[in-house]
Design a protein around this nucleic acid. Structure first.
Length: 198
DNA sequence: ATACCGATTAACT
DNA sequence: GTTAATCGGTATA
């Protein structure tokens, strides 16, 4: 079952980021469906968060989708190379989002391995936000689409993440955010894998 | 119109 | 540990 809209429209984005761990992210790219268990997320808290694209209320063609009602995708290109996938949260007008930083491949793993250009997958092969979108086939034109549609969606996993398994750390790659770079907004599901370390 | 840069990754030394 | 790759978004003029 796809997660209901009420999962995404809640105000507590940190809780949503934690609860997304263990859930299953699907993408249907040209009829080819792949999926993975979400194992790493980061929360971005909108206008008060120096690490957020919407900091200070910045509203541009790129960030407009962040102001949508929770439950849509925010996909943008980073470093000219990678697509990064976020889940928009909170009510309309509040630009919160959760970045999906790592998955454990589930459905159609061979296709994901092929898209990643791997001879043999390693345990870190799907840990990293650019790797996630490459493996699942998530593209820039998917930004703004509903997560209750048939292109990209999230379902409840068979297992619910135990709070004991969740590691909390500062976010990766946000040094430009000053003191906000130290906030403990990154969540990792410890499934006996080595967490991604930059 | 032009310049700058990044919520990264892989391939180096 | 260091660095090249690569381009859409954003700011500045």
């Amino acid at each position: 079952m796809k997660l209901p809209e009420t999962f995404y429209t809640r105000a507590d984005t940190l809780t949503i980021a934690k609860e997304l761990l263990g859930k299953i992210l699907y993408c249907n790219s040209s009829g080819r469906i792949t999926s993975g268990i979400i194992v790493e997320t980061e929360a971005y808290l909108g206008i008060e968060d120096r690490a957020s694209h919407a900091f200070g209320g910045k509203y541009t063609s790129r960030t407009a989708v962040m102001y949508s009602k929770g439950g849509v995708a925010y996909v943008y290109r980073c470093y000219g190379i990678h697509n990064l996938f976020n889940v928009v949260t909170h009510e309309e007008g509040t630009p919160h989002a959760v970045l999906i930083r790592g998955i454990e491949p589930l459905d159609n793993t061979p296709l994901m391995v092929e898209r990643r250009g791997l001879r043999q997958p390693a345990k870190n092969s799907f840990i990293g936000p650019g790797k996630v979108t490459q493996a699942l086939g998530i593209t820039l034109d998917m930004t703004g689409i509903s997560l209750r549609g048939d292109i990209v969606w999230i379902e409840e996993g068979s297992e619910t993440a135990d709070i004991q398994q969740v590691l909390t750390t500062p976010r990766i790659g946000v040094g430009y955010a000053g003191k906000d770079a130290l906030l403990p907004f990154r969540f990792v599901l410890d499934r006996n894998q080595t967490p991604y370390q930059p």
